[in-house]
Design a binder for these strands. Structure first.
Length: 392
DNA sequence: ATTCCACAGGAAACAGTGGTCC
DNA sequence: GGACCACTGTTTCCTGTGGAAT
């Protein structure tokens, strides 16, 4: 363990802290080059380069699973583009549509990027679109809009906003708007309006998962910037790459794992990251993920999770009875069975419970429900919530 | 082959909140 | 101040379903 505060500070002063630049392991870091995504980087640059001389470039779609470098490539090319444009009429807007999770919020973020104040509610979508387009037209702006996790927006709200964007050229002239969509889901196009599809899919790029060798390369480069020399050995980097590589080549997870392993080593006053630090970092990531997921649940979801941990049956009807009795004990309002069924599906999606549909023949269909997290960890986290504190 | 159960889950409607616009 | 808007969380209504029992 690290010892006293004095010792922690003394060690830092003596230069035994492992990190030089922690930022190099953060998700927002834009590296100097992306050697394992060179082809994709060039392709994105080629599509967006015409923005520099003011002619309208094509729209672009980037596909690939989580941690395959789509966002990194987009950020890298856009940062270079901004540098080259050196101000002027070029505006780059980045929106993660899972965070700005409605059409209105996505438009409001675009508005913010082009200096149009959009109130957070109160206006119709049409009014917001009108204000944003008018501003682009007036300023003759060349806007590159990156929509990360675009599949989420389309799945939830349809393609109305994309239709507006892809049909906007006349309303925006002499300004224009180019769209870079980033998606984890190759099938998301299936539900698109054919007119949106034709203009949006003019250029497409697929990002395959990284191999373990590529992950090693990425980690080596990041570690060179982030850590003091010899803090992250080749063996440590290999292990991080191998552990993350076994989970579908996710570079984001590999980088997180290395960063947390570094923090574990630093706290223990070690001079370098060893295997044990990496394995503990991996456990910590999983543990933190579950605890944070439970903590951030709405109270009704917590109640249903708790009912799942306490009841012995296997079907939805029995769970609903257990949930009802729990609500009475805690003084909570009870929801309908339909809503409880919906929340159960959400908990299943989050990986906190397993709810598989089983048919019991003439005794109907139901769900077999199983808690996927330890009931002790659940009790510990839920006891922090005053609604349930009396139950433990 | 048909019947029937106990739900699953989609769709639409609704209530409430917090806002803008004229 | 009233009409209108976005958004969330929920209820209500409804149709669909797998497979044991008949």
């Amino acid at each position: 363990m690290p010892g006293s505060v004095d010792e922690i500070f003394r060690r830092a002063k003596e230069g035994k802290a492992l990190f030089i630049d922690r930022n190099a392991l953060s998700p927002d870091y834009v590296p100097e080059a992306l050697p394992f995504r060179d082809a994709q980087t060039k392709a994105v640059a080629e599509v967006l380069a015409p923005v520099l001389h003011g002619s309208k470039p094509s729209n672009l779609l980037l596909y690939g699973k989580t941690g395959t470098g789509k966002t990194a490539v987009a950020r890298y090319v856009l940062s270079r583009l901004k540098k080259e444009a050196d101000g002027g009429s070029l505006i780059v807007a980045y929106i993660n549509t899972r965070l700005a999770n409605t059409e209105y919020r996505a438009l409001a973020e675009l508005g913010q990027a082009i200096d149009v104040q959009i109130p957070f509610t109160g206006l119709s979508i049409g009014e917001v679109v009108g204000r944003v387009f008018k501003e682009i037209q007036l300023k003759k702006s060349h806007v590159v809009l990156v929509m990360d996790e675009i599949d989420y927006l389309v799945k939830t709200f349809g393609d109305g906003i994309l239709y507006e964007f892809t049909r906007s050229s006349e309303k925006l002239s002499p300004g224009f708007l180019s769209l870079v969509g980033i998606s984890n889901d190759l099938k998301f196009k299936e539900g698109l309006d054919p007119r949106v599809l034709s203009s949006l899919s003019e250029e497409e790029l697929v990002f395959p998962p990284y191999t373990v060798e590529e992950l090693k390369g990425i980690l080596t480069e990041r570690a060179r910037v982030a850590f003091r020399p010899s803090a992250a050995s080749a063996a440590a980097i290999n292990l991080c790459a191998a552990m993350a590589g076994s989970e579908h080549g996710d570079a984001r997870r590999a980088i997180d794992l290395l960063r947390i392993a570094g923090e574990v080593a630093e706290r223990e006053g070690l001079k370098e990251i060893d295997d044990s630090c990496i394995r503990r970092a991996s456990d910590k990531m999983e543990h933190d993920r579950v605890e944070e997921a439970i903590r951030s649940l709405p109270v009704q979801n917590k109640a249903i999770l708790l009912a799942t941990s306490k009841f012995e049956g296997t079907n939805t009807g029995e769970l609903y009875l257990a949930y009802n009795s729990l609500c009475k004990k805690c003084g909570l309002e009870t929801l309908t069975q339909r809503r409880v069924s919906g929340i159960l599906a959400e908990l299943d999606l989050m990986g906190l419970v397993e709810a598989s549909v089983v048919s019991k023949g003439r005794r109907g269909r139901t769900k077999r429900i199983r808690l996927l997290i330890g009931s002790e960890a659940l009790a510990k986290t839920l006891s922090e919530d005053t609604t349930f504190a009396g139950l433990f």
